[in-house]
Design a protein around this nucleic acid. Sequence first.
DNA 1: GACCGTAGTTGAACACGTTCAGAAAGGTGC
DNA 2: GCACCTTTCTGAACGTGTTCAACTACGGTC
Lengths: 260, 260
Amino acid sequence: MTNVTTAAADSTPPGDGDAAPDSSGPTAAQPGTSAAGRPRRARGEQTRQLILETALRLFRERGYAETTMRAVAKEAGVAVGNAYYYFDSKEHLIQGFYDRNQAAHRIKAEPVLATEKEFAARLRGVLHAGIDVNEPYHSFAATFFKTAAEPSSPLSPFSAESSPARSAAITIFQEVVDGSSAKLDPELRRELPELLWLGWMGIVLFWVYDSSPGQRRTRRLIDGAVPLIDRLVSLSRLRVLRPALRQILALIASVRSNGE
Amino acid sequence: MTNVTTAAADSTPPGDGDAAPDSSGPTAAQPGTSAAGRPRRARGEQTRQLILETALRLFRERGYAETTMRAVAKEAGVAVGNAYYYFDSKEHLIQGFYDRNQAAHRIKAEPVLATEKEFAARLRGVLHAGIDVNEPYHSFAATFFKTAAEPSSPLSPFSAESSPARSAAITIFQEVVDGSSAKLDPELRRELPELLWLGWMGIVLFWVYDSSPGQRRTRRLIDGAVPLIDRLVSLSRLRVLRPALRQILALIASVRSNGE
DNA sequence: GACCGTAGTTGAACACGTTCAGAAAGGTGC
DNA sequence: GCACCTTTCTGAACGTGTTCAACTACGGTC
């Protein structure tokens, strides 16, 4: 059958993501996935990659909505049902895109984090790197975003399923803060990575909606917002602003607690 | 073209809701009640309202995804195609929900705006009113949000089609600012309504994702954020913050210009 | 080799959103 | 009454995402 000569793994990033999708659905567990280890057979893994590659290629070529599952299956040389054996839904194919770009962002941000010392420069570099990585997918990312926006969707950046990818992303901003020479309020320092990630989500949101040529407005937003954040972060140690800062941190803590 | 707005008396006079007493049969259209000749389009408008009412009811009862167009049509006693005669798509039915809640928000906010004078109290009242109005639809609003999140969708709060609804919403915050006793930087005063609306969008986003019982976290977010905003707005006249404020306003202006 | 269990695979079938060619319904001018 | 038009309405039909019972391939056991 589908002789897949290509070496397995292809360009598969090390992370591989996909932490046990296991849809907690009504019926029994998914075949092939075992809790801890990954006893997936080589053959299956190969097919899985083939389907994912094909799907992402078609998404890029035709767009998400215009790519049918039948087309993906046909192009990959398998039956429709086979795609559903490996991916719970069409949306789940997007998770591959998600993970891949996450890894690419990290890689692209690495040089900046290694060389720059100033907070503003580090942040700016990381943000632009993120846009760089996503740029080729702008038109398709809009649809992707639509899908991810549903809170109940496992693709939501806030969902439990995305938790690994989310912490990975936050880690980048952790490094932005940790490696920087900026002096700031210790409590703020603790919260800052997550806040920056939240800001990043906002920028992505803006970017998705940005229809200016080359998404220049998003670039301008970054260039304008970074010195601003830098300034505000510096001001955080100012006496007049102390109470306000405390207030913000208290609000975050309060809102975060799911309970009473 | 599609222009679905029909500002006509959307407020749903209680009696009207209808039920069309004789409508046991599917067709049964009541002819023009000889005496009081209705205006020409009356019949169509009636059907339109009937379909919208039915759809929103079913959305509330079963959820958006679980409500099929066939079910809406059957429940309303019309053919599927008829629903598509009045609404371009299933998503467009949501626009009715959108407009209605917009109006309800305004009405609910009215008393607060009429009595309160302090900025913080006005803002807090308006925000809570907005949540109050949307509360019954929380579970369904999640799906609604997913749909609206697609930038190309006419339902997006940033789309051209939503422009009227958007300005209506911004107007509310305009009143929050205008009627308040707060003293603030004149330039900021000019921009504040739109910024507050943007903040409101953020709160709605948070609310959509808020799975705490009764969405208490969103309430807490409002209660915590309002005094914070109030304080920051007051501080806007402080000398140290002047440059930062100017920077923010310049950034907004820069990002806003779509062009070069 | 024969048997069996499971990973892998198939494609018809289902329910859905949407479309479309046309049938009613109702008005207007003669 | 009749012809003609627009508005309103119909339901079969299309393409889609998704499901499912059944089939195949293959590794292990006796």
